[in-house]
Simulated scan of single mutants.
Amino acid sequence: MTDTQVLIITNEEDVTTDFIILELKRRGIPYFRLNSETLPNSKFEFDPLIGRDSFKISFEGKSIQLKNVGAAYYRRPGTPVPLIDISCDSAFYYCETEWLSLLKALYSLIDEKWFNSPSRIDAAENKPLQLLRAAALGFRIPETRITNHLEYAKTIQAPSLIGKPLKNSLIEGNDSPGIIFTSTLPPLDDLGEHEVRLSPVIFQTQIEKKFDVRVTVVREQIFAAAIHSQCNDATKVDWRASQNEVLEHTVVDIPDEIKVLCVAITKQFGLKFSAIDLILDVDDDWWFLEINPNGQWAWIECRTDLQITSAIVDELEWQCRQSLN
């Protein structure tokens, strides 16, 4: 496979990509890591009359040409940072936008060589659609209302409710940046309509958990890890809420019918990879929460020794071989 490379598009701080690169090196598979924030430091060439294969990005000492890309992994690209000698804000923004447009052009030209294409990742991040498809496939989902209307939220008949964001868990800005975790809500009668009207919220029945489960899907393979969140009050509702708490992670065998559903919903979104959040409740029932089309997985491998890196590189290697045929 000396004529093909694996292209990984990410950022300089993405440690997960290091796992992939170590395995690619071990197998002797050529690769090119494109840290997107450094893209303005490159020289770019493209001639549409020659075709997509002429698309070339060059840095000092290395380059990548689209004709040599056998497989591509969209990991965690950031925003390109224009050259530091641009002092005018409007010029800086203009250059940033132009480099972003170049990245998007590259994404579309890579086409079928993606592990997971950016367009399919974006489409799969639609949480209402996730819940709709999960329920239609046969997953058990918590009773849910997605609304900014308090009286409609009150139609959930449950002793306790949780609330979580529809899209963005990050609050950015200089005044009060932070993360919005899934949280137990106060009685809805204690809330004012004006508080709920501010933005859409996902209201759901709170499930009494035995533990959380992270299922990583790579094509047909399932890697399931139990996250023992109920041993700490801070993590009982959302296991991400205590950043300093090292929760126990164990390999868990999930029922075959749940495995089938995890693969099925991944395929329905046109994905080869997903990270699915499930709950096992105190009655041993399995609940679907959401699917992360580009979710993190390296920490699962570190804590459980599940061979996720190897499975992903298998797919990238297979795609490289296919591109030679």
Score class of each variant (00 low, 15 high):
L271V: 02
D277T: 08
H228N: 12
I227C: 12
V237K: 05
V252R: 01
D284K: 01
R214Q: 03
D253Y: 06
I279S: 04
A225D: 11
D256P: 06
A224W: 04
R214P: 00
F288I: 03
F269G: 11
V251P: 04
V237E: 05
S274E: 06
D283W: 04
F269E: 09
S274G: 10
V218C: 12
A226C: 04
V251S: 07
Q221K: 15
N244V: 06
Q230R: 12
T216C: 11
D256A: 15
T266M: 10
I265Y: 01
E248Y: 08
A224Q: 09
C262F: 00
F288V: 05
E208P: 07
V237N: 09
W239I: 09
I265S: 08
D212G: 09
L280F: 02
L278R: 04
Q221R: 15
K272R: 14
L261W: 00
V282Q: 14
E208Y: 11
Q230T: 15
I258F: 00
D283S: 10
I279T: 03
V217Q: 08
L280K: 14
F288D: 03
D283N: 12
D256R: 09
E220R: 15
T250N: 06
L247G: 11
K259H: 06
D285N: 10
V215T: 00
N232R: 12
I279R: 03
W286Q: 02
K259D: 06
I265N: 05
T235W: 02
T266K: 02
D212Y: 14
V251R: 13
K272C: 07
